[in-house]
Simulated assay, not measured.
Amino acid sequence: MSLEPMTPAAVAGFDHVIDLDAGALPELIAGLLADARAAARQDRLAAERRVREAVELVQREGKRLLDGVRPMPLTGGLAPWQVRRVDAHLAAHLDAPVKVSDLAALVRLSVSHFSRAFAVSYGGGAREHIIQRRLDRARQMMIETNEPLGQIAAACGFADQAHFSNRFRRAFETSPLAWRRLHQRGQEPSIAAADAAFA
């Protein structure tokens, strides 16, 4: 069946439904289509009019409903006390292995629930966050101390200096030694030589 553009009179026939809520829309459309099916046996023009009304209603009200959708605020994150507990635990244990299951137990959540809530609160996964915290601490130590990179790697919970260097390069696109030389002044030559041997 070919649908012709609706006349202003036909549109006016169902303008009273502009303030529909989403729950009433399917029932109204079903009613229009049922009327169209019933009218098709007796009056083909009336049937076409009802189908056009249904199409127009879907287009108009669907757009209105979609335009009214607002992004929902983020929910489902960790409670403030849980965030504080996780942050304190990470600060105290970055030099040792930190398991996601241990963090979940610390805040009394299952691992899957904790992982989802953590991602909402921190904007990413727990493992990535732990690595970033370790790298942040390592950069601070490289600036503030003269410790060799191997000792810094161990103090920040990396398996060894190679693991640390690999993660550092991925995050900052430079080696730890090059970064340290750029940011630390007055470094003792023996420390620089020790770092260069392992970079």
Rank of each mutant, 00 (worst) to 15 (best):
R127Y: 09
L65H: 05
R70N: 08
E48Q: 15
V83C: 06
E48I: 15
A104T: 04
F114S: 01
D35Y: 09
R116K: 15
L57H: 03
R85I: 02
F164W: 09
R41M: 12
V58G: 10
V107R: 01
G77I: 04
M6A: 14
I143M: 12
S175D: 10
E147T: 13
F158M: 05
L65A: 05
A79Y: 09
P97L: 00
A162S: 13
A171H: 05
N166L: 14
E128D: 15
R137Q: 14
T7E: 13
L94P: 04
D87W: 04
Q187I: 15
C156T: 09
L28R: 13
D67T: 08
K99W: 06
S101H: 01
R167E: 13
A119G: 12
V11N: 04
V55Q: 00
N166D: 14
A199Y: 10
E61G: 06
P97G: 00
L149N: 03
G62F: 01
R85M: 12
L33F: 06
A88N: 12
R134G: 02
G76W: 03
A138R: 04
E48M: 14
R116Q: 11
R50E: 15
V58P: 03
V11A: 11
A193D: 05
C156S: 15
L106V: 02
R139P: 04
G124A: 08
N146T: 11
E147H: 14
R70V: 14
R116C: 07
G157K: 00
D195E: 07
D95I: 00
A36M: 08
P189F: 01
A46K: 12
Q132S: 13
V17W: 13
H93M: 02
D102T: 05
D95Y: 05
L135I: 06
V11H: 10
L94N: 00
N146I: 03
R37H: 11
V111C: 07
L177N: 10
G31R: 14
A36F: 05
L25G: 05
P8R: 04
R185T: 15
V51S: 05
E173P: 03
H93G: 06
E48H: 11
V83F: 02
T75C: 12
F158P: 05
S121N: 01
S101N: 05
V55N: 00
L57V: 00
A34L: 13
R181Q: 14
D95A: 15
A91D: 15
G76D: 00
S112H: 10
E147N: 12
G31C: 11
L33R: 07
A40H: 11
L94V: 04
R181C: 10
V51K: 00
V17K: 08
P5F: 08
G31H: 14
A91M: 05
A154G: 08
C156M: 06
A126L: 04
L28G: 04
P80A: 03
I152A: 02
A79P: 06
D195T: 09
Q42V: 15
A162D: 12
A138Y: 06
H183G: 09
I191S: 13
A192D: 15
G157E: 00
A196C: 05
A54S: 09
A24T: 10
E4T: 15
T174D: 08
S190P: 05
F172P: 03
G186E: 14
R84T: 06
M141H: 11
A199I: 07
A22C: 10
G62P: 01
S175H: 07
Q42P: 04
A162E: 12
L106K: 02
S101W: 00
F118C: 00
V86Q: 07
P189T: 05
Q151S: 12
T7W: 07
A91Y: 02
A178K: 12
